[in-house]
Write a protein that binds this DNA or RNA. Structure first.
Lengths: 357, 357
DNA sequence: TTGTAGGCGTTATCAA
DNA sequence: TTGATAACGCCTACAA
């Protein structure tokens, strides 16, 4: 493949200076029509495509916004060895669009991010990496005008480092005193409402919370759980009944309860993904939801609507969160204002897993 | 916000040359440990983040792969005026994750693209624009090492222009003689099999095809439709019964047939989206699917599984298509080999819309 | 209306 | 092991 064609090539062929070539593309009205035509012609013939890097360097901005996701789940998708094409296709067609994996909530936020970026005429740059891999996010940060990040256990100091260079918004993270912009939802109120429903409508008395407190948002959800129990005069636990379901043999407490034949009335899960995993586990032990035990989730992902029973959950305005991030980033673009924080509302979604008809 | 900190700043603070700073990050082993520590320290203090543009310019590659989508649908998402946040959120929560809009097949391809890019340690750059807006794709092409494109009525010459600069793979486009890489599926065979089912299993005799031939893949689907009819000795139409459903008042032939009370036995739609629209239309006229008329789609999007009745369709290996694109692009990266073409297999998915139990 | 020339921040080459 | 210095391709005052 020949050398990339540059302004110099175009200029030479059109018999003008490189400045004129640049002008032709950036400020067409500034150049005489005939000259312009000459340049465009040359560019066409030579297959000229301006270098984004050079442009970005010269102008100081890339017109791109970044979205970085630390790998939180999907280990299987990633660690998978490089399968050959045929195997890949066969596996996919057998799996037939596994909604348990896609779209997850991140994907919905991403979609909002993309749509808004498109509306504003900016491109989107996606990056990702292991939780503690600092390089990835830093690399990305160096190539965009603003960066949105899914925390996923990212080191705070890393984020703050990055945040000094470009505006950064971080999702699912409660307002804090740092140089970052925050977007989250009213986790606590939402769970409180959900638990009110379980207690008030279904008369459940023994409820437990499952979830990994490490994630910032989940702490707030647990707080909502505690508050609801307290409001109803029920005993309030100090910590979750059980934690994540990332590994096959987790959910120890739940397994123990199942074995002992001593299940609570309701399992309030911190996320839909966890709730679905829990339902699977229960099914494997012939425990019916919601007949034997109620289960609820949080997020409102699509898989929860396709599950049996459908999931009672809390829906987050994901797309709006993504759009909001873009707006913050573009607004902040030039004159870095002070960090902002947004707490968006949610909606309780009644499915069948709570016991409702 | 202060000036971006650069190698110069770091070098000065560490008391070394900029070359040493660069080496510290790119070839750590080449620099004495103590010096290295000095540099890293300075970088940390200053919040140094290397400029992606400068790096890309100097190295000649950006390590990013592009994915460009011409706007084919979603006009509503885009033309929507800039709504204020509250309105946006309210609308979204009312709509509660509209699967009719997301994820569409493009999103599934995109996902495969992203996963594979991540696996290979490359970032992804997303772009989009109006069908005839040449600028967008060209802009993106100038910033990436390779570009994958959803055709959507894109001018061929534009694509070929771009293709001269970076490797380009184009989806849903049959093998052709051009400098581009092509990825598509066995559209013709797939539809033939589907129609065989309608005729053989359900005994339908009058079948029509709905779809816009302009899209390259759809031509092949129609050809499969024709072939199947011919094989069964049924009359073969020269063109589709009706075309797209992009505008509210399209589907004229179908509407006419409904009004006349003269519907065929089966409506073979070129895409799932079209099929779902058709089912909606029929429902509005109290025509039941599949009791009164059978309907099939193509793609296997999620919305087809949540519809009532569930959609009988053909599933494409979208994620694999995305992954394949990345592989082609990275392989081709340096020494532009000759263009390649891939035709991937599909899978017939029987839902209830064809009449199966 | 067009051209000259300096600068954007890195990397790479070659000396020191 | 470290340091000058020249690219890299484009944009943009400023001059002509």
């Amino acid at each position: 493949m020949a050398q990339r064609t540059t302004v110099y090539d175009v200029a030479e062929r059109a018999g003008v200076s490189i400045a004129t070539v640049s002008h032709t593309f950036r400020q067409p009205e500034r150049v005489r029509p005939e000259t312009r035509e000459l340049v465009l012609q040359a560019a066409r013939v030579l297959g000229y495509v301006p270098s984004g890097s050079a442009r970005g360097l010269a102008k100081g901005r890339s017109q791109a916004l970044g979205l970085y996701a630390f790998d939180m789940f999907l280990p299987s998708d990633l660690s998978a060895p490089a399968l050959d094409l045929d195997t890949l296709v066969a596996k996919e067609l057998d799996g037939l669009g596994d909604v348990r994996r896609f779209p997850l909530y991140v994907d919905e936020i991403q979609r909002g991010f993309e749509l808004e970026a498109r509306r504003l005429g900016r491109s989107v740059m996606l990056g990702s990496g292991a939780s503690r891999d600092s390089l990835g996010s830093i690399d990305l940060a160096g190539s965009v005008d603003g960066l949105a990040i899914f925390p996923g256990g990212a080191a705070r100091d890393l984020l703050e480092h990055v945040g000094r260079g470009v505006p950064v918004v971080i999702f699912s993270s409660p307002p804090m005193h740092d140089p970052l912009h925050h977007i989250t939802v009213s986790n606590e109120d939402a769970v409180r409402e959900l638990v009110d429903h379980l207690i008030g409508q279904h008369g459940h008395r023994t409820l437990v919370f499952l979830g990994e407190l490490a994630a910032p948002d989940i702490g707030a959800r647990f707080a909502g759980f505690q508050a609801a129990l307290a409001a109803h005069g029920l005993p309030v636990p100090d910590e979750p009944f059980d934690t994540t379901a990332l590994t096959r043999d987790s959910l120890r407490s739940l397994r123990a309860a199942i074995t002992a034949g001593d299940l609570p009335d309701a399992l309030v899960c911190a996320t839909d993904q966890l709730a679905l995993t829990v339902i699977d586990l229960l099914a494997r032990h012939d425990i019916r939801v919601p007949d034997d035990v109620a289960v609820t989730g949080f997020d409102g992902i699509i898989a929860g609507r396709l599950s049996d029973p459908t999931l009672t959950t809390v829906r987050q305005p994901f797309a709006s969160m993504g759009r909001l991030a873009v707006r913050i980033l573009t607004d902040t673009a030039a004159g870095l204002s002070h960090p902002t924080s947004y707490v968006l509302p949610t909606r309780t979604v009644i499915g069948r897993s709570c016991g409702c008809r």
